[in-house]
Amino acid sequence: MRSSWWKVLGALLVGFAVAGGLLLPVPRLHILNETIRNLYYHVPMWFAMMALFTAGVIYSVKYLRSGNLADDIYAVGFTYTGIAFSCLGMATGMEWAKFTWGEPWSNDPKELGTALCMLTYFAYAILRGGMKDEEKRAKISAVYNIFAFALIIPLIYIMPRMVDSLHPGNGGNPAFAKYDLDSDMRMVFYPAIIGWVLLSFWIATLKIRLSLLTYKKEFNIDSNKFDFDKNKFDA
């Protein structure tokens, strides 16, 4: 059980968010009704995605500085898990939009921004898939990862300000925080965010550990040089 307190904490918080999100009282609002509970599941997906993509970019930078293939495996693990969470966020968002805005795809700029972000990272996967040589694949995909992250993430925040959005807090819509997010909801919302972020990192580290073991086996790397506690190679 190496430094697993955050995994336990993440599981407990997500468990609390699932149970509390379904059972605890929420404000009764017109149109939203009970779908407001989706806030606990939809928004944490984006927080988890952003945290994972950021971790991926940090490891891409580390790879370019060190040239250590383990850093590349970390970057890929975080980024691919981030893609999975972006799909979940999109699915929960479209489900919610169907009930509140009338249709799953409402041409909302945040939806468009996220779709662009997803396309960018799908392109990252395609770029990686097209190369066989590990060193080259690691280097080129790290360069693209940094370039894409630095370009697309600011744009996601700029785009909604260019067009009116249906989301709360944009285009004259009241923000949740102003009226609706009362103390009952905060009690579930904040733990849900922290819990899902921790859980997403747990999933990513499992994926990374598997890739590291595969890599080690494929290349017959001396196991003395492989430090399992840190999941890292000694240089």
Partner: peptide, 18 residues
């Protein structure tokens, strides 16, 4: 990446749309 212009389009379209 030893690829053609198609890959460039795939990589570029989401980035230049905004």
């Amino acid at each position: 990446a030893n690829q053609n212009a198609a890959l460039m389009a795939i990589l570029g379209f989401p980035l230049v749309t905004p």
